[in-house]
């Protein structure tokens, strides 16, 4: 991977988290990736159904969990989707979801590398 991991994940914070979690760290990463994969599908479904409230809720949850896993950029994209949902709109959300999907793949790869 050619991109600088620091742009996607706060690696030193992730190391701290790893120390705290100890043996649970791997479970955490697996849980996060599985959970987020589900959320991406839910986001796509919400946008397809133009359900702004569902968009807001799922994006809010993803914003929180990605911030906890030290993935700042992913959290920021989720925040943008949450904001749209709160504004009551889903238009333009698909483009951001596309961006978010790419970011998630990058983050997941970095996380798995850090296990």
């Amino acid at each position: 991977m050619s991109t600088n991991p620091e742009r996607h994940v706060d690696v030193s914070a992730l190391q701290d988290l790893k120390e705290i979690m100890e043996s649970e760290f791997e479970t955490l990463i697996d849980t996060f990736i599985a959970d987020s994969t589900n959320k991406l599908e839910e986001l796509a479904a919400a946008i397809a159904a133009s359900d702004a409230d569902a968009l807001r809720k799922v994006a809010h949850s993803l914003k929180g969990s990605s911030s906890n896993i030290c993935a700042g950029e992913l959290s920021e994209l989720a925040r943008q989707l949450e904001f749209m949902g709160k504004e009551g709109t889903t238009s333009g959300a698909a483009a951001i979801l596309q961006q978010l999907r790419g970011e998630f793949i990058t983050v997941a790869a970095i996380l798995q590398k850090n296990i």
């Binding site: 979690m21 100890e22 955490l28 996060f32 959970d35 906890n68 896993i69």
Partner: peptide, 13 residues
Amino acid sequence: DDNDSDRLILQTI
């Protein structure tokens, strides 16, 4: 917390 990964982190701490 409904979010599994967040709950796991908090619970561990």
